[in-house]
């Protein structure tokens, strides 16, 4: 039984890790506390629903189109909301509030068109796969393996590509980047697209397994943000570590107590880290001022 819980923890952890990584991509570089990121996670499944069930397209094509539309939505958010604010040099609090505004608008548009009850994408009972005494569904296995591939590819990309170096430079000092002639705003579009991609892929996969409602994004995002905090803001490996830690600890708390208190684990971790180690596990060396 214990191993089964650990396995479940790893599955959940991979979801948190990817969402957290996407959030960190925006937060580390632009400092925008992008709460609207939560809606991308639930937006993609609804697009899949539209193309797959509504228009009767093939599953793979529906997935692809839905992901493209979600990425597009992510870029639109930057184009319509954040970019004008950034040009006005609005404060980060104002960005945060605007982000909440976007979240409210998109969530309710979805709820208006699709209803607020749970919808499922896949009505068949998913096939399972057994290793020893661990049972996982194929959907869960695909979540974990696709997450792993995304993570590895992304980290390598960040380390070795020109874009990766630019991203890390932007994390350090975006004014300097501007002075050095990098087109910050173009970079930001790419970053928003990439983070939208992460969220769309994992959101789609999870919804294919368990279904979705317009509010599924927020709880996942909260966990992802906590994963980022406990991993450590500033480094791109950190959200991944944090995501798996939270996933496994939550699974263990379900094992030890009951599912009711699994969220409490997250918040407890958040408070402990905020109080005692706000720099996270992989602390970026603390820079003064």
């Amino acid at each position: 039984m214990f191993l089964q819980f650990i396995a479940n923890g790893i599955v959940i952890g991979s979801i948190y890790a990817i969402v957290s990584l996407g959030f960190a991509l925006i937060y580390n570089t632009t400092k925008i506390f992008h709460l609207a990121y939560a809606v991308l996670y639930m937006f993609c499944p609804y697009m899949i629903l539209t193309f797959f069930h509504g228009l009767g397209l093939n599953l793979f094509i529906s997935f692809t189109v839905a992901i493209i539309i979600t990425v597009f939505l992510s870029v639109i958010m930057e184009f319509l909301v954040y970019r004008p604010l950034a040009k006005k040099e609005s404060s980060l609090n104002i960005m945060l509030i605007s982000s909440i505004g976007i979240m409210i608008v998109v969530t309710n548009i979805i709820s208006l068109f699709y209803g607020s009850e749970t919808k499922i994408l896949n009505s068949e009972i998913s096939k399972t796969f057994t290793i020893g005494n661990i049972i996982l569904t194929y959907a869960q296995i695909s979540q974990v393996s696709i997450s792993m591939i995304l993570i590895v590819v992304f980290l390598l990309f960040l380390k070795f590509s020109r874009f990766g170096i630019m991203t890390r430079a932007m994390r350090d000092d975006d004014v300097l980047c501007q002075v050095l002639g990098m087109d910050i705003y173009k970079m930001r579009y790419v970053l928003f697209a990439l983070s939208g991609l992460f969220s769309a892929i994992i959101g789609g996969l999870v919804a294919y397994d368990v279904g979705m409602d317009p509010y599924v994004g927020m709880p996942i995002l909260v966990n992802a943000v906590v994963a980022l905090i406990i991993g450590g803001i500033g480094r791109f490996e950190a959200p991944i570590i944090g995501g798996f830690i939270i996933g496994i600890l939550q699974a263990l708390s379900v094992w030890a107590f009951s599912a009711r208190w699994q969220d409490a684990v997250t918040f407890l971790l958040l408070i402990i880290f905020l109080l005692f180690r706000p720099t996270g596990i992989l602390a970026e060396r603390k820079r003064l001022v």
């Binding site: 060396r285 820079r287 003064l288």
Partner: peptide, 15 residues
Amino acid sequence: SFVKNIVNVHGNNED
């Protein structure tokens, strides 16, 4: 003294 974390020419972090 201040410590500055920079990205050096090889793209690695350095203090």
